[in-house]
Computed example of a mutant assay.
Amino acid sequence: MSFDLATRPLTAIEARVLGTLMEKARTVPDSYPLTLNSLVLGCNQKTTREPVMNVGDAQAQEALDELKRLALVHENTGGRSARWEHNFQRGVGVPEQSAVLLGLLMLRGPQTAGELRINAERWYRFADISSVEAFLDELQERSLEKGGALVVQLPRAPGAREQRWAHLLCGPVDVTTPVPGAYSGAAPALQERVNALEARVATLQASVQRLCNELGISTVPASPPGQD
């Protein structure tokens, strides 16, 4: 039976736990399934995570218990300590490629099709961006009989060339407000640099004026561009 998103959206921590299990299954198979300690460390990584989180052991265990109840993870108790593995692809009812894209969106936040293709290199090698877009379109157009859409395309952010995609596993996303991305912070950052440069120029001009006054000479205005 597939996970019913409409009935029970995931919490942010559940999505992080699930995404981390999906990532480690592909990137560090020798250490997989994961112990609770390894899982918490993966959830709280400072890189390849958006947003960065500080998940505690108790929070991770609670999320695992809920995900187990939803048949999205399995517990292995054969060793010295319990180990956990995901059951995402079967539990949600999506093909491998779609599961990879959803896992990346859960871990890294909204991304363009191009970013997803690059970030998926260690998970799955997509032939081209068109292949990524085809699976995203399929996830967005998923029928209600199968549980409804699992991703949504967001409005283009200011200064961005491409639109980003977000997952819907944690519930609806407000698509009326562009999600901040790699380009959205460019304009404020540029303005800050311009303001800083203008302040430095004003300081230099004041210093030059003061020096000219001390030397008893007058300043010569700069000629407009193209004039001598």
Rank of each mutant, 00 (worst) to 15 (best):
H86G: 03
G216K: 05
A199Q: 14
A187L: 12
D137A: 10
N44H: 03
T219L: 15
N54F: 09
S131V: 03
T219R: 14
H74R: 15
T27S: 13
T219Y: 09
L211Q: 14
L169Q: 07
L64W: 08
V55K: 12
E14F: 09
G42V: 00
L169V: 07
L116H: 03
T177L: 12
E133S: 13
P155R: 02
R117C: 01
Q111C: 14
L64V: 08
R26G: 00
I129A: 02
L168K: 02
G114Y: 04
F88T: 09
A222V: 11
A160P: 00
L197H: 12
P221F: 15
A199L: 10
Y32L: 09
L215F: 00
L136Y: 02
S2P: 15
A182V: 12
Y183T: 07
E214M: 09
A63N: 06
R80D: 09
I13C: 12
T35I: 02
R69N: 06
L197M: 12
D128I: 02
T219H: 07
Y183A: 13
P180N: 05
R83P: 03
A99T: 07
L36D: 01
P110N: 09
F88I: 14
I118R: 15
L101W: 12
E85A: 12
C43K: 05
Q191M: 12
E85R: 15
R164E: 12
P188Q: 07
G103Q: 08
S207W: 04
G171Q: 05
I118C: 00
N87G: 08
R193Y: 02
L190R: 15
P110K: 08
S2M: 10
D30I: 06
F3S: 08
L21M: 09
A71K: 15
L70C: 06
L116W: 05
G148S: 04
C43H: 06
L70F: 11
G159A: 04
A182Q: 09
A160V: 01
G147V: 04
G226V: 00
T35F: 03
D137M: 11
M106Q: 11
V55N: 10
Q97P: 11
Y32T: 06
R164C: 11
P51D: 01
C212E: 12
Q97L: 07
P155L: 02
P51C: 07
W123F: 15
P221R: 15
W165A: 02
Q61S: 10
V175E: 13
V73T: 14
T27W: 08
V151D: 03
A99V: 06
R193N: 01
Y183V: 00
E145T: 11
T7E: 14
N44V: 02
A199F: 04
I217C: 12
L104R: 13
D128V: 01
A6N: 07
R117H: 02
D30T: 15
V55L: 08
E214I: 03
Y32Q: 08
V100E: 04
L36M: 03
T219Q: 13
A127P: 01
V175C: 14
V28L: 11
S2Q: 10
H86Y: 06
P9H: 05
S31Y: 10
P158S: 04
E198A: 08
S218I: 00
I129G: 01
Q205W: 05
P180K: 03
C170H: 02
I129D: 03
G19K: 14
G185C: 06
P172K: 09
P9S: 05
L139H: 05
A25K: 15
G226T: 00
A127L: 11
V92R: 10
